[in-house]
Design a protein around this nucleic acid. Structure first.
Lengths: 123, 123
DNA sequence: TCAATACTACAAGAATTATTGAAATATAGT
DNA sequence: ACTATATTTCAATAATTCTTGTAGTATTGA
């Protein structure tokens, strides 16, 4: 996953409104919900919900499918799993459990070095 | 986890700079990194990194520990696990695997109902 | 005490984002 | 074709965020 994709996904979840929408869709799983139903459930103006859904869809956080005059939205769960994997893919070479060990250097031997040699000082 | 906590965490990851910082810290696990080392590694102005680290720490995404005149930052992995759990805690009653089933109504029986009865129309 | 280093705090600017209301588009049923 | 419903688009304002430069605080070592 590219960094830009990840930041867009996180940005989509950084608003209370969008987080509510997403969790509602996660709750509904493959059933999804249509836009008006989402707005009614969360007691929000439909145009505001539409605004956020558009952004979430663009980010890849949700998918949309037309059903007549309804737009059915679903949480994009596979994308979320990829996002989580991206977040931890370099974590202890793919074994994030080790990160909870207290052993220094277990995950990142380079970082166990003293925190020096960071000032090139070209003068 | 409260919604506000979750949105703050996601907001912390919605910037390319902060995402880079976090992934770097995840990579280093319990070893962590000191602020200056983070700035040097990512080739960013130290005050900008400090600005973002402060926000990330306030959000609970990272922890900080003083080491003499160094500030050592670490990714708050347990918090991230809680965040992921929060995102999926209502997903199919705690069994998100089911969300990938194509069976309608398996996760959210209520949503399988027709998308009507959303317009109270008080006139 | 003095100087150097590591980091943080503050202020100012541009840039982005959120919310609302009104209008527009598209589908369904008559 | 006409009306009602479902959703989106547009415009405008308010609010927030990002970045940089400068100054300040705290620790280390001579």
């Amino acid at each position: 996953m590219e960094k830009h994709t990840a930041t867009k996904l996180f940005e989509s979840l950084s608003s209370g409104v969008r987080l509510d929408i997403y969790r509602l869709l996660v709750k509904c799983g493959q059933d999804g919900m249509v836009a008006g139903q989402i707005a009614a459930t969360l007691d929000l103006p439909p145009n505001n919900v539409s605004f956020h859904l558009k952004g979430m869809n663009h980010a890849g956080l949700v998918t949309v499918e037309q059903e007549g005059r309804f737009q059915r939205y679903r949480a994009n769960l596979p994308q979320m799993l990829e996002l989580i994997a991206y977040l931890t893919e370099e974590c202890c070479a793919g074994h994030p459990e080790q990160c909870f060990d207290q052993t220094p250097g277990a995950c990142c031997p380079e970082a166990a070095l003293p925190p020096i040699s960071t000032t090139p000082s070209e003068s």
